[in-house]
Amino acid sequence: MSDFKGIPVVTGSKVQKPNGTRAIKNGMKANKNAAAVPIGRKPDWLRARLPTGDTYQAVKKNVREHKLATVCEESMCPNIGECWSHGTATIMIMGDTCTRACRFCAVDTGNPRGWLDSQEPEHCADSVEIMGLNYIVLTSVDRDDLPDGGAQHYADCVNAIKARTPNVRVEALAPDFRGVPEYVDKVVDSGLEVFAQNVETVERLTHVVRDARAGYRQTLNVLEHAKKHNPNVLTKTSVMLGLGETEDEIAQTLDDLAAIGVDIVTFGQYLRPTVNHLPVERYVPPADFAKYRQWGLARGFLEVVSGPLVRSSYRADRVFDKNNAGLDQTA
């Protein structure tokens, strides 16, 4: 999941720093169209703006006073100021240990052996209410150790939030639940507004970038099923760029997503968490991100959010404003 690459992660009120010690092999060729920025030195366009604003300060104050934990803060997300200023935040559920080992992600890999915090749904509802949010993104590690991949726990968290703050819109940036339709249904039917599952990269690079238990087609099948099962729920996915993909492959990915009715797509720059993770093949210039956004809009997506600092949850709330001109981070 894109929000986790190269970041410390948080679960409940406990923060764990990923060790990122798994060594991997690259197995990819450099993109011949790579930008002229030397790999290893980040270009100027990857500099984040300082967070400001009264609403941001109010959310930050509540987080501090009540010792709440958000992915936004613990991951040092570059967009925290903009999102918090508009009442949007991301919370990670189901622990801090992933049962998969994707090669772009710094989250710890292991076997949680079925552990779940039974109080987490109410804790999530507490956090959303205290922070005064308008939009909450629930994200998580993969939990292949659980019979349903954690689908019921996800649904319980959404139900608890909706029971306490029914006007808050909820997005689930969910695992693929091993592609089992009835597990996907549990989350899609929980009362949320947006169901997201990240395809992460183009099809050719999937076996290099993602854990073998994940897959390009599996993610497409999950998103397609979610949309058919509940057409009222928006479906969303995210793609990292800079891993060696070609423009033809980016266009094909957009075609594949449009064909299954995905509503929202985000593009962001892949950044290497540690030297033991996949290297950056190129830093994608802002002009290219703007171009790929236009490609997506031309294919009929409700929204395409595209920019170097875009992450899966970037200003997720604004899709409901139906103002896609305001979501170009490259502008």
Rank of each mutant, 00 (worst) to 15 (best):
C102N: 06
V9N: 07
W45S: 04
N33F: 13
E74C: 05
L309G: 02
T219P: 11
C124Q: 06
E122V: 05
D176C: 04
I93H: 00
S306N: 09
N232K: 14
N232R: 12
N134E: 15
M92D: 01
A35I: 01
E129S: 13
A30G: 01
R299K: 15
V199M: 14
A258G: 08
G87R: 15
Y154M: 12
M94Y: 03
Y135C: 05
Q16K: 11
L68A: 02
M92T: 11
V202P: 00
Y56W: 08
R113W: 04
S190F: 07
N26K: 07
E245A: 05
D255N: 08
V202W: 02
D142W: 02
A30C: 00
E303V: 00
D255L: 03
T330I: 12
G215E: 13
I24F: 15
E122Y: 03
N159D: 14
E245F: 08
V158M: 05
V10N: 10
A34Q: 14
L133T: 10
D142F: 04
E74D: 09
D256F: 13
A89Y: 04
G87N: 11
V71P: 01
M28H: 12
G179Q: 15
S190P: 06
T253I: 00
R210A: 04
C105K: 03
K236Q: 10
Q16P: 00
V63R: 10
F301Y: 00
I130S: 01
N198K: 10
W295D: 07
L138K: 12
V59Y: 02
E249Q: 06
R282Q: 15
N62T: 06
R100D: 09
G268L: 09
G81C: 03
H123P: 01
L50G: 06
Q252K: 08
S13E: 11
V262D: 04
D255T: 07
L309N: 03
M240L: 13
K32V: 04
C77K: 04
D156A: 14
G132R: 08
G53N: 05
V168N: 14
F320I: 10
D255C: 02
A36Y: 03
M28E: 07
M131L: 15
V239F: 03
Q152D: 07
Q218M: 11
G87F: 12
T109D: 01
R311C: 01
R213V: 07
D156I: 05
L297K: 05
T246C: 03
N323D: 11
G95R: 08
N167S: 12
C77I: 11
D263E: 08
Y183D: 09
N33T: 06
A258L: 10
L46D: 01
H207S: 14
I39W: 01
R49Q: 13
P166T: 14
P18I: 00
D145C: 06
K227H: 15
